[in-house]
Simulated scan of single mutants.
Amino acid sequence: MPPEWAPHERTWMAWPVPNTTFTGGYLAEARRAWAEVARTVRRFEPVTMVVPPGGADEARALLGPGIDLAERELDDAWMRDIGPTFVTDGTRLAAVDWVFNGWGGQEWARWGQDARIAREVADLAGIPVHPSPLTNEGGGIHVDGEGTVLLTETVQLGPERNPGWTREEVEAEIHARLGTTTAIWLRRGLTADYNGYGTLGHVDIVAAFARPGVVVAHTQPDPAHPDHAICAENVALLRTRKDAAGRPLEVVELPAPTLLHDEDGGWADYSYINHYLCNGAVVLCAFGDPRDEEAARILGRLHPDREVVLVDARPIFAGGGGIHCITQQQPRPWLPAPGPRSLAPRP
């Protein structure tokens, strides 16, 4: 799996549809937010939005021109999780199709259609599919492209997803599908990710690679917030770890927004970690918060060759995720004509 900063062929997204998450006026608000992200990414690379059958005209009215549409049945709109994980041998692409069970079979989730979206997207992209027996989502992994993958224990090792799997078995399957050799495990994710419409601990809201050897980590400066201790533990652990090349990790802290509570009075999980790297840009979650610009400066220093674009992510977080959660990159192969190597699945 190439790192997110490697060149992309395009970005895939999924259009919000009526369900237990997107109800009433929030559905319209969510669609406007998804459209804003899609239009922003389209400035830098092609975008395909998967929309429900018969929904193309309604989506086009908000998306505007220039964004490709594909009609397929959908249950939800988090393409990072329901879509494929793209892998390459440098000349050809393939799609890893993880088992998807509604983020651990949560009561509010429906996934009969979404469990097929990875294959649908692979078919639209014209690439082969490698099915995995592991229950996993794209938001539960982050790679450096040089053999290292970030994971959280409450996702891949949680009984809601993979009962009976050992850590060694999970790592073997992850490494076989992604081409990684070193797994760095965080104990858990943010507090709010275990409530409401959470994912039970996705890593892409707490830590992400910025380049090989460098990780950005979510920190909560306010000790009144329960994530204060969780983030301190994550940062301390990451600073003791080495990547697949044997480099000690450099950890760059990204402080959480100043807001401590969400609209319902629960603990907020707003995070700048959940940004998206597309060709030439960092599409960064904004929250109308004093720390928005600070996060933009930090990520701008880490990605000096990219434009940092702030997009209001509050309507997206209201549904349980962020900008990274609603996007999925299709990498661009970088080698010349195919040779004898094969993308056949490993046993």
Rank of each mutant, 00 (worst) to 15 (best):
P53Y: 13
G196T: 03
R346N: 12
D144S: 08
A236H: 08
G24A: 06
A313H: 06
N195A: 15
L343D: 12
C325E: 09
A14S: 14
H303V: 05
H175Q: 13
P315Y: 09
K242T: 15
R72Y: 14
P163S: 11
W165M: 10
W334M: 06
T327N: 12
G102H: 09
V215H: 03
A295W: 01
H142C: 14
A14H: 04
E29H: 02
I184H: 00
P255D: 04
P333H: 04
D89I: 05
V37C: 02
G189M: 08
H8P: 07
N274L: 06
L63K: 00
A217T: 02
F287Y: 15
S342I: 12
G189Q: 09
L343N: 05
D262V: 02
Q106S: 06
E307Y: 00
P257E: 08
W5P: 06
P255C: 08
L343Y: 09
E58V: 12
I141A: 03
L343P: 12
A118N: 10
R306F: 04
L237W: 15
D123E: 14
R119Q: 15
E171G: 11
R110D: 15
Y270R: 15
L335Y: 05
P18H: 01
G102P: 10
G198F: 09
G66I: 01
L27S: 01
V283P: 05
P84G: 02
R39V: 02
W334P: 11
E36F: 00
E171K: 08
A172S: 11
A296V: 07
L150K: 03
L302H: 10
C285F: 02
R306D: 00
W34K: 01
C278W: 07
V215P: 06
G213A: 03
A109D: 14
W98D: 02
A125V: 10
M13Y: 01
G64P: 06
C325M: 04
P163I: 08
E73I: 09
V37K: 01
E9T: 14
A30M: 12
S342D: 13
A33C: 02
A33F: 01
V17A: 02
T91G: 13
F287A: 00
A125K: 00
M79W: 01
R211I: 07
F100H: 10
F317G: 05
E168G: 13
T88F: 00
C325N: 11
D222K: 06
H228F: 13
A286C: 07
C231V: 06
R110M: 14
Y194W: 03
V283L: 10
V216Y: 07
A95F: 06
L254Y: 04
A244Y: 00
A295M: 01
N136H: 15
L62W: 05
L343Q: 06
A318H: 14
R92P: 03
A256R: 11
E153A: 14
R301W: 07
G201S: 05
V235R: 11
G246K: 00
H225S: 07
R247E: 08
T219H: 01
N101R: 07
D97L: 04
R60E: 14
G138Y: 06
E71K: 02
W78L: 00
E307R: 12
W5A: 07
V155L: 11
A95I: 04
L124I: 13
A318W: 13
G126N: 00
P159F: 01
A244E: 08
A176T: 11
G83S: 04
L124P: 10
G179H: 08
R211C: 08
V282I: 05
E253C: 11
R247W: 10
E253S: 09
P221W: 09
